[in-house]
Amino acid sequence: MEAPGIARTARPGQFVNIDCGTRVVDHTVYDTDAAWPQIGSHFAASERIFLRRPFSVYHVDGARIEIIHRVIGAGTAALSRLQPGDTVKVLGPLGNLFSFSPLMQRAVLVAGGIGLPPLLILAQALKENGLHSVLLYGAHHREQVIDPAVREFETLCDEVVVTLETKTKGYRTGLITEPLQEQLHTGDVVYAVGPRGMLRAVAEVAGERGNRCYLLMEERMACGIGVCLSCMQMTTSGYRRMCVDGPVFDAREVLWA
């Protein structure tokens, strides 16, 4: 997307809220991303997606920003139908930042599934600051692996480890916490993005080993600017807003339901 203002100011960890456009109603499917009933419903053949959807910034190139998304529900399906040259409304950059210190030993980036893209601009920033990083990337099966992104990380990180939950030739099998246990050294700082279960497991490993750990989290969101109080995460200091107090949280502050 051509978005000069966002491209100029977006920092690692931040996201944008995108107006995904119009969805085409398929009367035969059901859709667990959104609440609308589909079977036997009588909607028009197309319908505007109502709320904007949040997407992490993957890459910044001059005046352009890139996101990578998977088609999960109606919003992302509509987004995938956009053509080059189409105009979309984008609000951003939103949210807080991944913080890092020039004094830290090394960054251990942990990504699960579609959690990989937000870590790229962090890996770039780390390298620009002369800091070392490794990427541990877990996916369910081979098709989920975002190959072009992995190649980008290979130019930025000291090491890239990919594990798949489904046994696949040429890949390590298992959960991402196994390579994490092996790789984690004293003084490393963990940055994790992925499904909630993975984040929790990563936070536990980091906690046991005494490593600082930052999690980029997700929750259903509406406004993106902190007013609606929809995207809440319970923390040691009460409910916090994903969109302005997050999406990055110190793992020690997160309370898991």
């Binding site: 959104a34 505007r48 929750e219 509406a222």
Partner: peptide, 13 residues
């Protein structure tokens, strides 16, 4: 949470 969900031409909060 969840505290919000999109519904046809609206939101339920």
């Amino acid at each position: 949470t969840p505290r919000i969900v999109e519904t046809p031409q609206g939101i339920l909060n």
